[in-house]
Write a protein that binds this DNA or RNA. Sequence first.
DNA 1: GTGTATATCTCGGGG
DNA 2: CCCCGAGGTATACAC
Lengths: 232, 232
Amino acid sequence: MRLVIARCTVEYDGRLEAHLPEAVRLVMVKADGCVAIHADGGAYKPLNWMNAPNVRREEPGRWEIANAAGERLVITLHEVLSDTSWELGLDPGLRKDGVEAHLQELLAEVPHLFGDGLTLVRREYPTALGPVDLLLRDTAGAVVAVEVDRAGAAHVAVEIKRHATIEAVEQLARYLEFLDRDSSLAPPVQGILAAQTITPQARTLATSRGIRCVVVDYDELRGLRRDELRLF
Amino acid sequence: MRLVIARCTVEYDGRLEAHLPEAVRLVMVKADGCVAIHADGGAYKPLNWMNAPNVRREEPGRWEIANAAGERLVITLHEVLSDTSWELGLDPGLRKDGVEAHLQELLAEVPHLFGDGLTLVRREYPTALGPVDLLLRDTAGAVVAVEVDRAGAAHVAVEIKRHATIEAVEQLARYLEFLDRDSSLAPPVQGILAAQTITPQARTLATSRGIRCVVVDYDELRGLRRDELRLF
DNA sequence: GTGTATATCTCGGGG
DNA sequence: CCCCGAGGTATACAC
């Protein structure tokens, strides 16, 4: 990794055009060749950048970086205050826990939480528009629907979010539209929006579309699984 | 701006949990107190970070950074290879050209491109869900609708995107639903999706919802405006 | 502050 | 390769 502190101006021409007036900034060049220009504030996002792969032509006082898509970044270095390089080596990478995928894993193990007699058909059930998080089947005729037109549904589609907004409702509604045309399922398919938090607007829209909202708790689910495992 | 090159491990506990095994990385601390931990690759996004505002408690070999939301970042420094600081000063900031807002400005000037007799009512026309990019009015009864149920519409809502996906169609469909209930407009309101590029899936969904797709060219529009200005 | 929309989003997965 | 969806998205803006 190379770190250059310099008074510079920058021009970017590609997906848009952007210009940075003269100021002192950090220019970071990583081992893969990607370049980022940072100011001394504004979260982690650089002011300007060029991703790898790219080609960098370096002349005294002027760097020109271009990629195959025709994007071009020109850095004019008026004064270089520091120019250092470091061997960092390959990073072992980040381990994450608590993202939507984990919520999905946990919920897939306890489908009966959404209604007695509900069992898992599969996770990531495919539709023409994309995969539904969970598809459940009612094995006891006990689905409780909030709207008459989806009452007694034999299948239930579950959309899982950490935080559900209107977008999540739209997404599930799209899936339901296509699931109702799925010949292997008997329409109507019931929809459930499951999330740790749900905005009031999303809840309103969901209700008006006959979609049930369920608030779930990640820590509680983890505990539940631990408790269930104890039975064996 | 402070730049620390160090062999370190990192723990984040907040909106999720994340862990970074021991490796040499760059720890960047900006003037506003935000912290970012970079590996030597992977575009501009850091492996881990903490935005401002936050409180940083620094002990030898261990930084603990926390914010008001209860998020916590702990950096254990096993070996510090370099620790430098720089005065960058306030950045004059980035000037951009070619974003969606500019496309909207240009299109607002030539509403007749969407159909003869169409004039601009206003940009950012408000609905309960948010503003519609452009609302047009048919002053010549010449709106061409792709679906019978929206034929002869007196008003046209235009959603503008640089690149239109299914999301854009959903967004416009939501607006149309509310515009049809707008007492100051006579339903049905026609919808047009205008973008520099439109995905095939978005086009399919748009057509099935009676929304017309129009591909626009930013450079051509700029030229068009220049040509029109020459007339005066 | 919440909610909504944009972004040179980045990043990963699947067809 | 494109498309889609998630993100500790970040960021701006309106209510």
